[in-house]
Design a protein around this nucleic acid. Structure first.
Lengths: 192, 192
DNA sequence: TTAATCATGTAACACGTTACATGATTGC
DNA sequence: GCAATCATGTAACGTGTTACATGATTAA
């Protein structure tokens, strides 16, 4: 997937590893965090496959840079990848893995867990404008305004997802409190 | 994360690599798909760290099995992991990565993409009962009924997530159609 | 008799994470 | 003078994926 993400960005315009790193950091981090080391590794792999071409550009008063451009084979590959039915059916969710084992903790601690998740889930909602700003900035540098439409969709997804997580957390908190209530009731009955 | 997932399951009851594989396949696959090869590798790693202990059990008419049990250090580690603030801030989403580059395709193809995603997103809703059945079966084999509460939460999440994805797809379809309408209007104006 | 289940893995490769390493320029 | 930015990476390790490998038993 990362290979094709990088390929897609190079497809927008010729670029360097460093610039790619910034685009990922500013515009794609919410759904595809990447390390610098990965970018340089994948760029070499893309070159080996003949999907991109590199040109060394000398600069005065700055380090030389390696500018990558997409080849015809690369663009074909990108289109094939977009058309292919290649979305994984299931994805890993650390959140749900932890939830699954939360019975190991006291209900009180489990409650705290969901409060924490709920709070985290408001981060994107709060910084949502910021992210959209940098996406719109990026859109302005490019030609085709239709692309911004799809970028907006990814931001929409982020907002909807966080709202859903908050609703889920609220429900989980409710379920735990209900259980605690039932437990206390049982204890009370036993004491009678 | 997988290490702790396996540790958590062994914490419920002593078990073998093969049984772990089945529990992952039947009850955890929606949020943590795993290969058999990973399980055996991680089991060895858990043993090296002293979090589990292995006992070889001979069987008549069946292959021997390696039964793993959690150690005191292992249970401490599990609790520490549950309490720790260790959820990754951002997760990779192949769905959003593809969406981000969908401007490379014709709007018609993009529409098909979202129709496909929407259809896929109904799978869990449809097989939801099945999964909950196998979770309830698993719950019945264990002692503490409180654990089932947290398992139910993960299923709830699945249902809510799919519903959200469907709503998002519908919205994306609407956005594309709106854009297509605007484009046609522009063309019509130009022709006048 | 054939497929599924029980039960174990190894090997090779792909991808993600963490830490380290260098060095000039620009802005405060 | 110091931090941030520009620009390049390497090394080691951890985790996920794919394919292969073996062999007995049980149910249709």
């Amino acid at each position: 997937m990362l290979k094709h993400g990088i390929l897609g960005l190079i497809g927008y315009e010729d670029t360097t590893g460093y610039e790619l790193m910034r685009v990922f950091r500013d515009s794609l981090r919410h759904f595809w965090p990447v390390q610098t080391s990965q970018i340089y590794r994948e760029l070499r792999a893309l070159e080996e496959r003949g999907w991109v071409r590199v040109t060394r550009v000398e600069q005065s008063g700055r380090p030389d840079k390696n500018v990558f451009s997409i080849t015809r084979a690369g663009r074909e590959e990108l289109i094939d990848w977009l058309r292919a039915d290649n979305l994984p059916k299931y994805e890993r969710s650390p959140l749900l893995l932890k939830t699954f084992f939360l019975g190991e903790l006291e209900p009180e601690e489990a409650l705290q867990f969901f409060k924490g998740v709920e709070a985290e889930a408001s981060v994107f909602t709060e910084e949502g404008d910021e992210t959209m700003d940098s996406v719109e900035d990026y859109a302005a540098t490019l030609d085709d305004p239709r692309k911004a439409l799809y970028w907006r969709m990814t931001a929409e997804f982020g907002l909807m997802y966080e709202e859903m997580v908050r609703a889920w957390c609220a429900r989980c908190v409710g379920m735990i409190e209900e259980m605690k209530g039932a437990g206390e009731h049982e204890e009370a009955v036993r004491k009678e």
